[in-house]
């Protein structure tokens, strides 16, 4: 039998023009806006610096130092997906970097083992965060504020304010090297981002995290444990912060405990500008990467024009506020009235 009046009949027409519809939706999306902004920023920057940006070394640096912002942005995004926050992202990055260096310099472990251990350490810290949130029912903000303070201390506990250097030259070579002019660390960050995208788009666990973040009640009624989702999101966040720590170790050739000090705010800026809601249920891997790139461009501009570094913070802050306002306007006034 067929419905006499089918509320969905208009869909048949829409499917026909599906591609046009998707294109229009894409043009209106945050990703598109960010791509345009990123491209425009890059072109303006490149042309006003007289092509300086295209010289091999500068261009390489632009992307080399993009890896860590992308990774910490993704680390924050992972917990935002379930409606949580992780204030410890920055210090975990610094701590894992210090531990990796310590394992190589002091303990004498080979680089691959140290790298693996440091990433796992990040995951373990994430596990601790998640378990604390779930078991104590204390707000995730406060829990990670506390663990941030603890890890901040531990970070300096590894080697005080001293610097580790002369660790595995192979690792540093790999970190500073590039594959056909594309920095290795940037390739790593992109691969990780792809993996995260696939995880959230295709993997059963990733979808469960998003379902839990998007509608906890529906998730629970579908047999998904919201507690497990929160723990897993924190573990993922810790792992990603650990990878960021390793990138720091490999890229710089020497590390000290101040690594990660200035990463907390950028970790939020990238996903928020990229279109991730604090309420959970949404991730935007491309958006987060693009936002990290735009913030990086502002950094580069600061260096190129030798402007006061403070402008960067001021502009990034203003951009986040602007992004927030624009998103609100886009959602429309109807939300504001209820």
């Amino acid at each position: 039998m067929t419905s006499t009046i089918d509320p969905t009949s208009s869909d048949a027409r829409r499917i026909g023009s599906g591609n046009a519809l998707r294109l229009r939706e894409f043009v209106r999306s945050t990703d598109f806006t960010l791509i345009v902004l990123a491209a425009a920023g890059f072109v303006v920057l490149a042309s006003t610096t007289g092509g300086n940006l295209f010289t091999g070394q500068t261009l390489k640096a632009v992307f080399q130092y993009l890896a860590v912002p992308i990774l910490v942005g993704l680390a924050q995004m992972a917990v935002l997906a379930v409606g949580q926050m992780n204030l410890s992202v920055g210090v975990v990055t610094g701590f894992t970097a210090m531990v990796a260096a310590w394992l190589m310099v002091r303990v004498g472990l080979p680089a691959p083992v140290a790298v693996l251990a440091a990433v796992l350490l990040g995951g373990a810290i994430g596990l601790a965060n998640g378990l604390l949130v779930v078991l104590t029912r204390i707000n995730g903000f406060i829990v990670t504020l506390a663990t941030m303070t603890v890890i901040d201390g531990l970070r300096y506990g590894v080697n005080g304010t001293g610097t580790f250097q002369n660790y595995s030259s192979g690792l540093v070579k790999l970190g500073q090297g590039s594959l056909v002019d594309v920095p290795n660390v940037f390739i790593l960050a992109v691969l990780v981002a792809l993996a995260v995208a696939v995880f959230f788009r295709r993997a059963v666990l990733g979808r469960q995290l998003l379902a839990s973040g998007g509608n906890p009640l529906a998730a629970r009624l579908s047999g998904i444990s919201n507690d497990r989702a929160i723990v897993m999101a924190h573990v993922l966040s810790g792992l990603l912060a650990g990878v960021a720590g390793i990138v720091d170790v490999a890229l710089s050739g020497s590390v000290n405990a101040s690594i990660g000090d200035d990463l907390l705010l950028p970790s939020f800026a990238a996903p928020i500008i990229g279109g991730v809601a604090l309420t959970g249920g949404v991730v935007a891997v491309l958006g987060t990467c693009l936002a990290a790139f735009i913030v990086r461009l502002i950094d580069v501009a600061q260096a190129q024009y030798s402007i006061d570094k403070s402008w960067v913070d001021l502009i990034v802050g203003a951009v986040v506020l602007g992004a927030v306002l624009v998103t609100q306007v886009r959602i429309g006034k109807k939300g504001a009235r209820t």
Partner: peptide
């Protein structure tokens, strides 16, 4: 958070 970011820059400027 964003305001803090902006003010960090503003204050040192």
């Amino acid at each position: 958070l964003a305001l803090d970011f902006a003010l960090v820059g503003l204050v040192s400027l």
